[in-house]
Design a protein around this nucleic acid. Structure first.
Lengths: 117, 117
DNA sequence: CGAAGATATCGATGAACGTCGATGCCTAGT
DNA sequence: ACTAGGCATCGACGTTCATCGATATCTTCG
């Protein structure tokens, strides 16, 4: 169920798929790809998590600092972070007992570019 | 269930909500608003409909021209167009027997701005 | 090694969603 | 007035998803 396979981690610029959306009609595959990416963003909890991480020092935060602000259970927060990571919006790095999630701004600007063309 | 109430139709520039997403943590209400808007986009059929309308003359198309390209039933297409319209991405105008849907580009650029800040 | 804490995974549950066929409404033409 | 066609609404069905409690995994500390 990993969405971003194939290309190694050199997914530098445009994070996900596809064609610009406003130029020519999207093919079925491109549409599904972009929909998966947008679906990862289309949730209040995930948007809040993303914004909290973005506003943190180094655009990075550990799970323990995210649970209270969003007011959800630890498993639920962990689940949302996984979804965001698989969609390419966050990266995970474990240091000691804690798991730190860092923002990938290119992913957000990539989606924005696709929408605005 | 209409999402854009309050403000009249002078929703000129930023189409939907809220705060820029990357600056400070999103409040619960802002997050829900933005999620509703993104959820309207996060569907393959709706993305294809949007791109077809966008690529049409005058960025406008009638329902009858949209059914075959997306390969869905007429009620389903009608449903998706309603969702997109309520989210502010399309406007509807009935002329004669046909219903024409026109793109609102500002809505897309508005969302893009919120994501890219 | 054993205990404690942080995080991920699992299984279950209730709600939301995409899809369709059937039907209703409205407009245009006969 | 009746018919035909375009579109919206309704009701139903199956799937997806957000959420949680329980549990497993791993790391650090005593």
């Amino acid at each position: 169920m990993v969405t971003l396979l194939g290309l190694t981690d050199v997914t530098a610029s445009r994070a996900e798929c596809c064609t610009p959306l406003l130029r020519e009609p999207l093919g079925q595959q491109d549409a599904e790809q972009l929909a998966v990416t947008l679906k990862a963003l289309a949730d209040p909890a995930r948007l809040r998590l993303l914004s909290i991480v973005a506003a943190s020092e180094g655009q990075e935060a550990c799970v323990c600092d995210l649970i209270d602000p969003v007011g959800l259970s630890q498993p639920t927060v962990s689940h949302h972070l996984k979804v965001l990571t698989e969609a390419g919006f966050l990266t995970r790095s474990k240091r000691g007992t804690w798991a730190y999630y860092r923002l990938r701004p290119e992913a957000l600007t990539g989606v924005a570019d696709l929408l605005a063309t």
